[in-house]
């Protein structure tokens, strides 16, 4: 009975969500009998090798992979938590809020560094820095900006070259963009000066990293700020046209996180997938088409400022705080 109700509900809601899906794909194991439903904001192209390496070792499972923007991942999972078994997102603040509000299941006995997990429910499995990506051709004859300050100088001195040719996240749409922006604003006042300059040069706003990189490669825009370097590096087709710069002053590093739905009936299968993700087995050198930088405990993390998984992340999710921040951001970036 419950199942039928759920089906009806799903059918009723389906059209509404169908509009928001960026992609939906079913990966089948060789003799898959159980299907794990994953909702994620990671592009299928980038995540597919991870799923495939999992299905090779667990052929009894299928994975239904649904891609939406991080904000949609959050709201869609929150409204129908029954519809998914795992949630993967780069928006750490939204993921943490899901756990805080009791939507995730604690998983015991997972060996993982304390800074990369929260409440035994949320597990980080990649380390991805926010970076500046430039079109090499557009910067011919211009100094390559190594930091935010240098970027401000380049933009200020060459307004004619960059007007309408700067890209960044529309933080009203992108959860990850909002996370990077708020964390930037916490770290340094430079963020606001940069945003002012970008606003004065009619900056283009994007929902997602993928679009930004496409435009960069085409040369429509010359520089983009706070893009995921991992996405740019993944695109071997455009590798010779663009350059990924990690700002030397500071670069916020995000963890892509995964949680298992509180309501799922497939905890053990979901735990297998979760273990696969955090084991970073999927990033062996031979699987060269995997471009996500895995979270490993061996690497030296002291130079990065990894966004901490703590309740502070919920501050910028407060409705009033968010409104204040976005108002301020809008007045800076939209000056027309």
């Amino acid at each position: 009975m419950r199942y039928i109700l759920f089906l009806i509900l799903a059918l009723l809601l389906a059209p509404a969500f169908a509009l928001d899906w960026e992609d939906q794909q079913l990966f089948e194991g060789n003799n898959g009998t159980q299907t794990l439903r994953v909702i994620s904001n990671t592009d299928t192209a980038i995540f597919a090798p991870v799923i495939q390496s999992f299905l090779q070792s667990h052929p009894q499972l299928n994975i239904e992979y649904n891609v939406a923007s991080s904000a949609n991942v959050y709201s869609s999972f929150r409204s129908t938590p029954d519809a998914y078994d795992l949630v993967v997102s780069s928006a750490m603040d939204l993921q943490l809020k899901l756990v805080n509000d009791g939507f995730a299941q604690p998983i015991e006995d997972i060996a993982h560094p304390a800074w990369a997990k929260w409440r035994r429910s949320l597990f980080g499995f990649t380390l991805e820095p926010a970076s500046i990506v430039i079109n090499k051709a557009a910067f011919k004859g211009l100094p390559t900006p190594g930091s935010r300050q240098e970027m401000i100088e380049v933009l200020r001195e060459n307004p004619e070259a960059f007007t309408g040719r700067i890209g960044t996240y529309d933080i009203r749409q992108s959860g990850l963009g909002y996370l990077f922006a708020t964390q930037d604003a916490r770290v340094s006042e430079t963020y606001w000066r940069l945003t002012e300059i970008m606003g004065s040069l009619n900056t283009q706003l994007y929902c997602c990293s993928g679009d930004m990189i496409d435009e960069l490669a085409k040369g429509t825009i010359a520089i983009s700020y706070n893009v995921l370097g991992s996405y740019a590096s993944a695109r071997s087709d455009v590798a010779d046209k663009i350059e990924v710069i990690l700002p030397s002053d500071f670069h916020n590093t995000m963890m892509r996180t995964v949680l298992i739905a509180q309501t799922t009936q497939k905890t053990s299968a979901a735990t297998l997938f979760l273990r696969h993700l955090i084991s970073s087995r999927w990033s062996k050198p031979d699987t060269e088409n995997v471009s996500l930088p895995p979270l490993t405990t061996q690497q030296d993390n002291s130079q990065r400022s990894i966004i901490a998984l703590d309740p502070g992340l919920m501050v910028f999710l407060d409705a009033m705080k968010r409104k204040t921040f976005i108002d301020e951001w809008e007045s800076a970036i939209i000056q027309q």
Binding site: R119, D310, P311, G312, V315, K321
Partner: peptide
């Protein structure tokens, strides 16, 4: 009325066992 909640207001509630935080204003 505007309330610009400081980051520390919630960050200080971080505990070793990652306790959950709820609030209302």
């Amino acid at each position: 009325v505007k309330i610009d909640i400081p980051y520390a207001a919630f960050s200080m509630l971080n505990t070793e066992t990652d306790d959950r935080v709820f609030y209302a204003i």
